[in-house]
Computed example of a mutant assay.
Amino acid sequence: MPPSPYIGRFAPTPSGFLHFGSLVAALASWLDARAVGGRWLLRMEDIDPPREAPGARDAILQTLERYALTWDGEVVHQSQRHEAYADVVERLFRQGLAYACTCSRKQLEDYNGIYPGFCRDAGHSRDGAAIRVRVPELSYRFDDRVQGPFEQHLGREVGDFVIQRRDGLYAYQLAVVLDDGWQGVTDIVRGADLLDNTPRQLYLQELLGLSQPRYLHIPLIIQPDGHKLGKSYRSPPLEPDQATPLLLRALRALGQAVDPSLIGATPAEVLEAARQQWRPEAIARQMTLPEADLR
């Protein structure tokens, strides 16, 4: 059987260690690729050094290995892709599709995250300024494999958005689109916290002549106290010696059938059994776990 053209990826940010929510997203992404014989790439989204946690990069790689979530090829680091990002920013700026913005956070704090266009036609120099891409007065829509249809009007609901920050660092929206295109990613499986970022990425894909991947946004895990599971709130790092029980809990969170005989299995055996029975249609649009499944 020839390899599937499916190319998936997992792209953690080294601002902290992997937690249970990270595991659920990584596992879903890995299974979705492996179930069809596809490739699964690993990309370190390390474009924001001030937010990085010491030791997080190595810890992420070691955790994935302990949990048998093996990847194909070399790990790509976005910190080594600055030249590619710079070329695109320069091209968009030269074509008039992007412009320099000197607005401060204080100036924008009353606009609910929607850029009002203060600098759109100001003609500012790029020195010490952020770079925003001009958005059309259009809606962008896609069908998510779990969340269903999603639509957002870029002009009314987002406004021109930043592709390079005032401090010179490149924005997530630009880097993720360029790297997914460069790596030939066909399917993106990630957390639903990024769902409303997707229309901006669809626009950049269109602007840059890149193919649109399929999307599957895993619902965020809501804890019994109503808080979302994440790095910022009571989400302990994954324990290396708990790989099998945590993989089984992650499978249950994804709505997958779990054979009781796998309790004593190795992580690799759990993953192989799950790969053979992967049913993405079983993933719920919302996910709330009992306290026991968060430990």
Results as ranks from 00 to 15, higher is better:
R91C: 04
R81H: 06
F17R: 14
I263C: 12
E74S: 15
S15M: 06
N197C: 05
R57Q: 14
L108V: 09
V89F: 00
I7Q: 10
A98G: 04
A268E: 14
V24Q: 02
R105M: 10
I47P: 08
Q212H: 08
V162Y: 01
R234A: 12
R120C: 11
L194Y: 01
R81E: 04
L251F: 06
V88T: 10
Q205A: 14
T244M: 03
I60R: 04
H227W: 08
S29A: 15
G159C: 02
L174P: 07
Q80R: 15
T266K: 11
Y140V: 07
A265S: 15
D143V: 10
E239F: 00
A26Q: 12
Y6A: 10
R279C: 02
A86G: 03
Y115R: 10
D167A: 12
A273E: 07
A59Y: 02
D160I: 11
R134V: 10
E269F: 04
E52S: 10
E272W: 01
L254S: 10
L229C: 02
V135N: 13
Y115S: 08
S29L: 04
G230P: 04
K231W: 04
V258P: 12
G38E: 13
P50N: 06
A265M: 08
A273H: 14
A86N: 12
M1P: 11
L174Y: 02
P116Y: 06
L154S: 14
Q152Y: 06
N112I: 00
V75T: 15
G113N: 10
L202K: 10
H19I: 04
A265V: 12
A171S: 13
Q242F: 00
A28Y: 01
M287D: 05
E45S: 01
E272L: 13
T266W: 00
L262F: 10
R9V: 08
L202S: 09
G8R: 11
P54S: 14
P136M: 03
T288H: 08
R43W: 01
R249C: 13
L208Q: 04
L61H: 13
A282N: 14
V89R: 03
A129V: 14
N197H: 09
E269P: 09
D160K: 05
P237G: 04
G155H: 14
L42V: 11
D193M: 05
R9D: 01
R51A: 06
Q276R: 13
L195K: 06
D48R: 06
P267V: 08
W182N: 09
L195G: 13
P213D: 03
L108C: 06
P149C: 08
A257T: 15
L174M: 05
F10H: 05
R249W: 03
V258R: 13
Q152M: 14
S125R: 15
P50C: 02
G38C: 15
Q80F: 00
I221W: 11
E239Q: 14
E272R: 15
S15G: 12
E157N: 11
G209K: 07
S29F: 02
R66F: 00
R214N: 08
